[in-house]
Design a binder for these strands. Structure first.
Lengths: 333, 333
DNA sequence: CGCCTTCGGTTACTCGTGTAAGTAACTCGT
DNA sequence: ACGAGTTACTTACACGAGTAACCGAAGGCG
């Protein structure tokens, strides 16, 4: 296998084989309208490119054009729940329609500025941050200076220089906690998941629940929990002495896990403890007891793709509707 | 907001501000050992880079160096189950240690060659395909010609030019079907999920189950199913007239969904129908009845990262152990 | 004083593309 | 027959970064 010998094939190779100049190759392959090429040479060029297996160099193209067609979505895969995974796939498809290449990247960075620098190196056309904290005003400035045209983020309040889709995780916590309080619960637990990348969502949800407690007679206790049977079982086994009568379980997956270990430990739901999840996953309605949950209405992938395209092309886009948490009441709370 | 005016800051800007040549900037920022720079100017350069918020242009660097530090993982997010999502995050971290930037990308391509071309445009240092079909010999050649150094894939048999980790989804189907047959089941159903990107896994699993049927008295019926309550309920409601006594449910998530709708429809598990999942997720053991499943032992993220690094640097790497399916027996089958 | 090193820097070329500007050949209208 | 216009292509440069080769000044040594 002549790996090193077989250097990457460039448009110059295609030009040589087709017996034309490199410029002509470029005109043909990009279908440039301002220049005409005879059908004969056009065919020769296409044939040459095909036999050589020519693929343009995105880096070189980005260098020349000053931007590329990447859309970077910084997010840890495990932080992408079932709720958004389908949505992200749809977004891929929508963006492809505009000619963009969507890409997911989950680095483990010490601070937001370092993360922004790493993203900026790729010179993406757009950056779409799904959590509220990873793209702040400072990071936005770094990316802008690096020539990134479109910055979009889900965030609790408008960020300077970023097209913000308003979404406050605190309101999720408020929504869940208010429901629990309305159902007569006073000693609330809030699950804090251990998985990577989730604290950015979990912390504000906890804060939201606390704000509800502050204006009522309720109390809030954070409950550290890994997404493992052992960790959940540990929580359930010592449940009696905690004396909690309501739990907001971060999301439906954690909630389902809790329902299982509560059942095994003989803790009655919703009798002894009411449970609220989040995301309204397919399985939520199928749990026994059926899971009360918070549904999040996210703008459609098509809307987001269109907005990103506008941002890249014109620098501005119509504001997108805010994400509203809606309580879906079922049997568990 | 002076978006267009504020052109991207380059190393030339840094050089100007620091009062040195661009070469010196490059030597300082890359800490080049072969050239010495006085402490004074080194400090000036670093300060200038910092105040300007300079970030190198990955494309330009890739152009010059002939390769970049990207590791491309082509996979749809929704096809990445809970099983591998944590693994992929770990892989991100491990690769970062070597200085690589891992990136996930899920395009919807008409054929594998088109997909390979799209990936090749980015000129990644490595491509890691997690499903057996997306990276064939033809795609490998395209990528090789584009200068991609490391190609790695999970595949049922060695692929020309690709560092293959042997993993045959058919064996998953065999493993599940053999267990069902051993438990006395003869009329088997195999769930074929509707989600994007899953057919690459589901088809061979079905084939594996069929091969078991072929050498026994059992029959196999494919069951089209979406990951929705409605689709699952439809399957459960017409269950009696199908006359099936065993199901391999593709994975644990589909299996859990099935268990729920079977329970609601009054279909007894495992009495009337035995159910086998796959992946051995956290929730599998917690289902009622506890879910029998197939566990897949994947090489560690650290092992894979090391192998990719070796491939990029030296062109060869030690073979990784094959992925073995292991049946985990519980109550549902 | 002449010659060799070392230090600290610069100049100049390269990577692969896209495109503005230029050019050679051919057609056409009067 | 000759400028004008059209067609079909080429030449030349820019994008941002890395680095081999070069270069002047200072220091060391006989």
């Amino acid at each position: 296998m002549a790996r090193n010998a077989a250097a990457a094939v460039t448009s110059a190779d295609v030009a040589r084989l087709a017996g034309v100049s490199r410029a002509t190759v470029s005109f043909v392959l990009n279908d440039t309208q301002t220049h005409r090429v005879s059908e004969a040479t056009r065919a020769r060029v296409l044939a040459a490119a095909d036999t050589l297996g020519y693929v343009p160099h995105a880096g070189a193209r980005a260098l020349r054009a000053g931007r590329n067609n990447l859309v970077l979505i910084p997010a840890a895969v495990s932080a992408v729940g079932r709720l958004v995974s389908g949505w992200i796939d749809d977004l891929h498809t929508e963006l492809e329609r505009y000619g963009y290449t969507a890409v997911l990247h989950a680095g483990r960075y010490t601070d937001p500025a370092a993360a922004a620098r790493a993203w900026a190196e790729l010179r993406p056309g757009a950056v779409l941050a799904l959590d509220g904290t990873s793209l702040g005003a400072a990071g936005a400035q770094v990316l802008r200076r690096a020539g990134v045209r479109a910055l979009m983020a889900l965030a609790p309040q408008p960020v300077e220089g970023v097209h913000t889709v308003l979404f406050d995780d605190r309101r999720v916590g408020v929504c869940a906690a208010e429901h629990l309080v309305a159902r007569g619960r006073r000693r609330l637990g809030v699950v804090m998941p251990g998985e990577r990348g989730l604290s950015a969502f979990a912390e504000p949800r906890l804060a939201g629940a606390r704000s509800v407690a502050a204006r009522t007679t309720a109390t809030v206790t954070p409950l550290e929990m890994e997404y493992t049977h052992a960790s959940a079982a540990r929580l359930a086994s010592g449940w009696a002495q905690r004396g909690l009568d309501g739990v907001f379980a971060y999301n439906d997956e954690y909630a389902s896990l809790l329902l299982c270990v509560f059942r095994d430990a003989g803790v009655d739901v919703p009798g002894e403890v009411a449970v609220v999840g989040c995301d309204d996953l397919v399985t939520a309605a199928l749990q026994r007891p059926a899971l009360t949950t918070v549904r999040l209405a996210v703008p459609s992938a098509a809307q987001v793709a269109a907005a990103l395209h506008d941002l890249i092309e014109t620098g501005t886009a119509a504001p997108l509707p805010a994400v509203e948490p809606v309580l879906v009441r079922r049997a568990s709370a």
